[in-house]
Design a protein around this nucleic acid. Structure first.
Length: 719
DNA sequence: ATAGGGTTAG
């Protein structure tokens, strides 16, 4: 037959056949074979003919046809062709069809088993991988060098260390103790299980290290919080003949991201361009994450915009988390909303980053929207997402909502308990934090260093001096070494109670070098208790440790102001000018009708400015009526503010309060976020306003929350 | 005939 002589070489040898042509050809052959069965015998019995058809098929219907034809030709028990069919089903993502073929095959051999195991591995169905592996051993087959890599991958994804050890034992028993592919799998496996030491041991014993081995160890250190070691290994790799490929560079990029080394990362980016790997989509994601995390959000955004497949969740995640981590919280939220409107499904990491961004925006309305979204998604039970939600609500001013999330979470670990404790601490609810700590121990959860930071902060924010002191000493019972954050809480506690000398002695006895937070706490205490000499000493330490932070100069100036040492106040002003330090501009944000309104000191730019200032005057009159005396010294000399605005005596938080009062129904709680510390004068004024106008007012300043109610503040006038 | 490594992050 002329037809058959011309078509088979074309279809079997030419790789660029379109699916349509195959489809048509198979159909054609099948129909012809019904009419001329004998003429086609030689063709339908040729294995290479079928093999080629299978390899070139691009749609499941092609496979159905080939399978039908195999059955007709009595080849349905041919191991070679049936395995090929399973493999190709796997390539086309047809997991269930692959399994059906496997199940129908009477006596599968090792090839067939490997094919079905690989199918599950490629589709991230790791439980099935293990199930098939166990079954395969049960029927008496020995796993080989093709089985183990898939099984090891499955162990590492399931994070089952016990199972991993068992499989490692099998590797040795079946004689693959020094096979490179299998060993590479072991390196990656131990690294993922957090046993980087074991990973390194396996790696060191490898005598033929490929790029895959190096990538496994570099990424292993990266995943285990040792980016410096990861970079050191990469350096070592470069001294060998092994050439980096794009997958290995993903891990190296991540290490540079973690150590925040913009310069080195940039130079690696240069190498990537030279190697012609810049268009590699997944490497582009790593580059985006790198630039975003290092603060170069514009560069990152340009990569993001270059993205070819706009539904790659990881790219969105890299950009959203990058924005969130660099003070571009609003952009992060906008991008998240853009993602949803484009119908791209966020994953749990997207949600974590978006929630983190909401926490930074500080709007309770936005926080509630985010919470609703999470609850409707399939990540409502995700322990990471819920922990971030707790943190978000606490930072947006509603510790009650944070508690609701905490209570509805079915699984709780240390980090979640700590986040809730930290939330209470932020709001000065020390007793709640301590109750929660006891409840946590009752549940059998062991506290860690972060738990104690939360507890000590809670005690210091609520003035629970004795309790804080006791808790600090409890840390030893859990084998936790105090860090600077812990010490600074204790200094704060002692300072609050007026034990300034004791606080100083406590610092001198610290077994580690006291850091910025410790001296900062001492300076604050000196400001409250007007202790100039010790305060100056603390300030000197701060200036040498953290010379470009304006806040320390402001604190020292406030200390001088509190002691009416105006010449010193003026001197600080000169000092700051000499050092070229500019004062931060203070601003306050209030959320009214789901819109954020930002005010600077003396701000006249708001459309309702007239009404606001009328309200402010009304407030001033009422305050004077009840005998309120402004703390003129701190107002006039508070370096938080621009000079001309100081003269106006109208700080941003007061404007926000005034606007809140005229824009909301009586008794509505006002929630305000301020970028700097609260000033003494505004603090006293708002306390009175909360009583006179019967409003609860919650102000988040740079350090903590102030709950104003009935003329009092939750901070107890110490901050 | 079949294989291995990587990326966001409370």
């Amino acid at each position: 037959m002329a037809l058959i002589c011309t078509i088979p070489p074309y279809i079997t040898k030419h790789k660029n056949v379109t699916p349509f042509e195959i489809h048509k050809f198979v159909k054609h052959l099948c129909s012809l074979s019904l009419h001329y069965p004998h003429e086609f015998d030689h063709c339908f019995k040729s294995h290479s003919f079928y093999a080629s058809l299978i390899d070139n098929s691009t749609h499941i219907t092609h496979l159905y046809q080939v399978h039908n034809q195999l059955v007709l030709s009595g080849l349905q028990h041919n191991r070679f062709l049936m395995t090929k069919l399973v493999n190709q089903s796997s390539n086309l993502g047809q997991i269930f069809y692959a399994r059906k073929l496997f199940d129908e095959f009477p006596d599968p051999d090792l090839f067939m088993w490997n094919a079905i195991i690989r199918t599950y591995s490629r589709n991230n169905m790791y439980r099935n991988v293990i199930e098939m592996y166990r079954w395969m051993k049960w029927v008496g087959l020995h796993p080989d060098k093709f089985t183990f890599p898939c099984v090891l991958k499955a162990c590492s994804e399931l994070l089952d260390f016990g199972l991993s050890c068992l499989v490692h034992a099998h590797v040795i028993v079946y004689g693959f103790g020094s096979h490179v592919f299998v060993q590479n799998g072991l390196v990656a496996l131990y690294a993922k299980c957090g046993r980087i030491g074991m990973a390194r041991m396996v790696f060191d014993r490898l005598y033929d290290r490929t790029i895959v081995s190096w990538t496994a160890i570099v990424s292993g250190y990266g995943q285990n919080g040792e980016p410096w070691e990861a970079l050191r290994m990469f350096d070592q790799m470069r001294k060998t003949d092994v050439k980096p490929d794009w997958i290995s560079l993903v891990s190296v990029m991540r290490a540079y991201t973690d150590v925040d080394d913009l310069e080195q990362g940039r130079s690696l980016h240069g190498c990537i361009i030279k190697m012609g790997l810049e268009e590699e989509p997944d490497l582009l994601i790593s580059l985006t994450a790198f630039y975003a995390k290092c603060g170069e959000v514009t560069v990152a955004k340009s990569f993001f915009d270059k993205m070819k497949t706009p539904n790659k969740v990881m790219m969105w995640n890299a950009m959203i988390s990058g924005y969130a981590k660099n003070g571009h919280a609003e952009e992060a939220v906008e991008l998240f909303q853009a993602m949803i409107s484009r119908n791209i499904k966020p994953d749990s990491i997207t949600l974590r980053s978006a929630v983190l961004a909401c926490a930074q925006v500080g709007s309770l309305k936005l926080a509630q929207w985010m919470d609703d979204y999470v609850r409707k998604s399939k990540y409502g039970g995700d322990i990471f997402v819920n922990t971030t939600l707790i943190d978000m609500y606490a930072k947006c001013g509603s510790v009650e909502s944070a508690r609701l999330v905490f209570d509805r979470a079915s699984v709780k670990d240390v980090v979640m308990w700590s986040a809730m404790i930290m939330g209470y601490g932020l709001h000065g609810q020390g007793w709640e934090a301590i109750y929660l700590y006891h409840a946590m121990k009752q549940e059998g959860v062991c506290p860690n260093d972060v738990t104690f930071i939360g507890l000590l902060t809670a005690c210091s924010h609520s003035g629970l001096i004795k309790q804080g002191w006791e808790l600090f000493h409890c840390m030893r019972d859990f084998g936790i070494k105090p860090r600077n954050e812990h010490y600074s809480c204790v200094v704060d506690l002692l300072g609050r109670a007026g034990y300034l000398k004791q606080a100083y002695v406590f610092i001198l006895k610290m077994p580690i070098e006291p850091g910025v937070s410790v001296w900062g706490a001492l300076l604050s205490a000196c400001k409250i208790h007007r202790c100039v000499t010790l305060g100056e000493y603390a300030a000197q330490k701060l200036f040498s440790l953290d010379p470009y932070n304006t806040g320390h100069y402001v604190q020292l100036s406030n200390l001088y102001a509190s002691s009416r040492m105006w010449d010193r106040v003026a001197y600080i002003r000169v000092l700051m000018k000499e050092k070229g330090l500019t004062k931060y501009l203070g601003y306050s944000v209030i959320d009214i009708n789901e819109k954020l309104h930002t005010f600077h000191a003396g701000d006249m730019s708001h459309p309702q400015a007239k009404e606001i200032f009328y309200e402010l005057q009304r407030q001033e009159r009422r305050l004077k009526e009840v005998g309120f005396v402004p703390h003129t010294e701190s107002v006039l000399h508070d370096l938080n503010y621009e000079e001309k605005e100081e003269n106006l005596c109208i700080h941003s938080e007061r404007i926000a309060v005034a606007y809140g009062l005229i824009s909301t129904a009586p008794r509505t709680t006002l929630r305000i976020t301020k970028n700097l510390r609260a000033c003494v004068n505004c603090h006293s004024a708002i306390k009175l306003i909360s009583k006179l106008f019967e409003r609860e007012i919650i102000v988040r300043d740079a350090n903590r929350f102030h709950h104003f109610k009935d003329g009092l503040c939750s901070c107890g006038d110490y901050w």
